[in-house]
């Protein structure tokens, strides 16, 4: 039993946020279906089943437009914080350490340790890929989510156009529609505000015990120390 408890404790963040994601996605599906059917009734159409709604572009675009902006946020933050610093922020590294840092700092090449991942010790293209793997994967999820938003938003937009007895648009045409850019930018703006405010608020504010914060007693000017 202690072994099971330890395993659960050791994976608390991944487990709890994964379960919260599933619960909230169910909540989104239920409330989204209710709103969708309100609109169906308002235009004199038949309400749809949950199964129909879950396979609709209306549900899909609402999910993936939020996904793409979250992964854009993480992708930009991971890349931005290589080169950009914020003096005094726990979200930043020290102001004189900008850039990709030395092989010694990063335990790469000749500085790899015996317990380093094997692609680090390879020293060829595998080391180059592994050195960028977090950014590559988060960037790929962003691009794929944004593409998914474009095709699901396009399908949902055309369904609405047909309902209004207006002409459907091509996918490229949809990329020029206000609907696509409104969905995109309303999510992007909030992510940029959240990232910027996190970087700046963490200079002067503390959260005891959180690795996202400096120690409570750290000076406002201290950069990159975590509590």
């Amino acid at each position: 039993v202690t072994g099971v408890r330890r395993t659960l404790r050791d994976n608390g963040l991944g487990l709890v946020f994964g379960l919260l994601f599933l619960a909230m996605l169910v909540g989104q599906a239920v409330s989204g279906l209710a709103q969708y059917n309100d609109q169906q009734i308002a235009i004199g159409a038949e309400p749809v089943s949950l199964g129909h709604y879950l396979t609709s572009s209306s549900f899909a675009v609402d999910v993936v437009e939020n996904w793409q902006s979250e992964y854009l946020q993480f992708f930009l933050y991971i890349f931005g914080t290589i080169w950009l610093v914020q003096r005094g922020s726990s979200e930043s590294k020290e102001v004189d350490r900008t850039g990709v840092e030395s092989d010694a700092d990063q335990l790469v090449g000749a500085h790899a340790r015996s317990d380093s991942p094997c692609w680090v010790r390879a020293g060829d293209w595998r080391t180059a890929v592994f050195s960028r793997s977090l950014g590559i994967v988060l960037g790929a999820i962003f691009v794929l989510s944004w593409f998914a938003q474009s095709v699901t938003g396009w399908a949902a937009y055309n369904a609405e156009q047909l309902g209004n007895r207006e002409d459907p648009v091509t996918w490229l045409g949809y990329l020029g529609e206000p609907d696509f850019w409104n969905r995109t930018l309303q999510n992007w703006q909030s992510e940029m505000l959240a990232v910027g405010s996190m970087a700046v608020l963490a200079v002067y504010l503390r959260q005891r015990g959180s690795p996202e914060s400096k120690p409570v007693g750290a000076a406002h000017g201290d950069t990159s120390e975590t509590g």
Partner: peptide
């Protein structure tokens, strides 16, 4: 196999399958 590795595979798998599914929903014009 550790739970950490299972979580990694679950996250990557769910995201990948969901993105393929949603993209197909859009392309099929549902």
């Amino acid at each position: 196999v550790s739970l950490t590795r299972i979580l990694f595979i679950a996250y990557v798998g769910v995201i990948t399958i969901a993105l393929v599914y949603f993209t197909l929903v859009g392309l099929l014009g549902r």
